[in-house]
Structures are given as structure tokens and as C-alpha cells.
Simulated scan of single mutants.
Amino acid sequence: MPDLIEAIVALPAVPVLVFDALDEADDPADLMQRLLLPLTEALRPDGRPCLRLLVGTRRGTRFQPLLELAAAQQTLLDLDDVPDGELRADLAEHLSLRLAELPSYSAAPQRPVRTALARTVAAKLTRNAGTVRDWGPFLVARIFGRALETLPAPADVAAAEHLGASVPVTLPGVLELDLSLQPQRARLRAVLAAVAWAKGEGLPTEAVAAVAAEFDPDVNDGNVRQLLEANRFYLRTGVESDGSTLYRLFHQGLADYLQVESYLRPYTPTHPRPDSSGGPE
């Protein structure tokens, strides 16, 4: 660490270092204590900080020293600190644009339907403090949008509002809803559970197949490749030094849930599956 600080101090200009997704590091608390905090304390000969540090992370008490330091310097930017009305409008616009891309919602006569659906979903997700604080309404809405690709489109505005009001308000809830709609749900759950344990750039296909087979014996190399390709929605990819593709989940919250929960149990909804007809469930 002293060598690193000495090298930074010797630079002709104050650099900017960016650390994104601190909470996704292998040992984020240790990284903060041994690297980030010492960097914030180091000074140049003229008394200026040795660098400007931009750190992206989710909330967590283990990061409290870093958060308190940023708050004391009035440099803490909380992306969740948005007025409810603004957040609701942005979320409704986001989901409306997403729906407009789906064939069953894209026609001009469907505009009132997708508008009503988007507004209802946005209203429910933003009035639930737990969704805003713990999961992020955009993430939940994004996965609900994926589920809407499978569910029949509502026939009218009333049915759209009924469907929108059924949106789960947690990441586990909306993930389980989407998995319940997939034709190979058990195999897909096993594959996603395997990818959830990926570190760094991700796992190669062979490793995904080997781990997933421990969760579901029906998984093999052939159907793993098919499932990975068909469910890129949930994945981010990297490239190994030999050119092979590496897979990881697109959001750490998904990995956290799939690692901790008993993710191989059958889906048993606590409320009826969304009914787009607007009739009795």
C-alpha cells in the first residue's frame, strides 16, 4: 500500500480512481479497510488529497466508515434519494417503453393498455418502501417485464390495471414468478443457481453444466448450452483467455438470493398467478 500511495502522489495531476460494485468484491470490507480508506487519507505535498475516489456500492453497515466519510465531505450521492413522484414517473416511462417493444403490446390500439399497466406497476412498486430500499423498483419491474412476455396481454385498461396490481414487490417474488412461467423451469433454476456462484468474469459452460447437474440430474452439457442461450436476459458474459464464453448473473441481488434460498424447491406462489383477463382469479 505505501508503494501504491507513493506512486499516486508522484503523478503530475490528481487522478480519479473508480471502484464500481464494491459490495460484489470477494471481501469488500477488507478491500475498504486496507485500500480505499488509506487512499482517502493520503495527501500530496501541497496538502491536497492524493486522488479523487468514486466508489459505487449498495447499502450495508460494513461500508459505514466509507459512507460516513463521504457524507462528512458532502460527496455522498444516494441514487435512491429521489422524490416519490419523480421515481414513479420515471419507472412508468421505462416500463411503458419496454412494453412497446413486445409484439402483443406494440400496436397503436394497445397504447392505453400498456400505459395503464406501466402506471399501475410503477405506483405499486414505489409506494412499497421495502422495494425501493432493498431491491430497487427498476430491477423488479425489469424482471416483471420479462414475465409479461409470456403472459397474455390484457384486453383492456381495466384488465391492465388488474395485472399491474399483481406485480410482486420483492426480487425473490418476481424471479419466482418468471421462473414459474418457463417451460424448463427446474433445469433453468439449476443453471441459474450454478451461475450464481460465479466469481470474477464468470463460469465457462462446462463448469455451469457440472455444478447445475448437482442440483438437477436432468441437466447436461447440451441443454445447459440451450438454456444459457435462451435466457441471456439474466446473464452477463465475458471471454476467457482461450476465447470461451464466461457467464455470470446480471445483478448481484439475484446471485445473493439464489445462493442463500432453497432455490430448488418447486414454485409455490403465495398468491394467485397474475391473470391478464381482469376476471376472477
Rank of each mutant, 00 (worst) to 15 (best):
P2N: 13
E6A: 14
A7R: 10
P12H: 05
V18K: 14
V18M: 14
D20L: 11
A21C: 05
E24M: 12
A25G: 12
P28Q: 14
P28A: 09
L35Q: 12
P38F: 07
P38N: 06
P45W: 10
G47C: 06
P49W: 00
V55Q: 05
G56N: 14
P65N: 02
E68N: 05
A70Y: 01
Q73V: 08
T75C: 03
L77Q: 09
D80Q: 11
D80S: 08
V82I: 13
D84V: 15
D90Y: 10
S96W: 02
S96T: 04
S96M: 04
L97W: 10
R98W: 05
Y105C: 10
A107S: 12
A107I: 09
V113S: 01
L117H: 06
A118L: 08
A118E: 07
A118V: 06
R119Q: 11
R119H: 09
V121E: 03
V121W: 06
A122L: 02
A123N: 07
L125T: 03
N128A: 13
A129D: 11
D134K: 12
W135F: 15
L139K: 11
V140P: 11
V140D: 09
R146W: 02
L148R: 06
P152S: 04
A153Y: 00
A153T: 03
P154A: 05
A158C: 02
A159D: 00
A160V: 03
L163S: 05
G164P: 07
A165P: 06
V167Y: 04
V167W: 03
E176N: 14
S180N: 03
Q184P: 04
R185H: 09
A186S: 12
L188W: 07
A190C: 13
V191R: 13
V191F: 05
A193K: 15
W197I: 03
E206P: 04
E206T: 15
A210K: 15
A212L: 04
A213L: 01
A213Y: 00
A213F: 00
F215N: 00
P217Y: 05
D218E: 14
V219L: 06
N223E: 02
V224T: 14
R225L: 13
Q226E: 13
L227V: 06
S241I: 04
G243F: 06
G243R: 10
T245L: 10
R248V: 09
A255M: 07
A255I: 09
Q259N: 14
Y263E: 05
R265K: 11
Y267S: 06
Y267A: 10
P269C: 08
H271S: 14
P272V: 10
G279N: 12
P280A: 13
E281H: 14
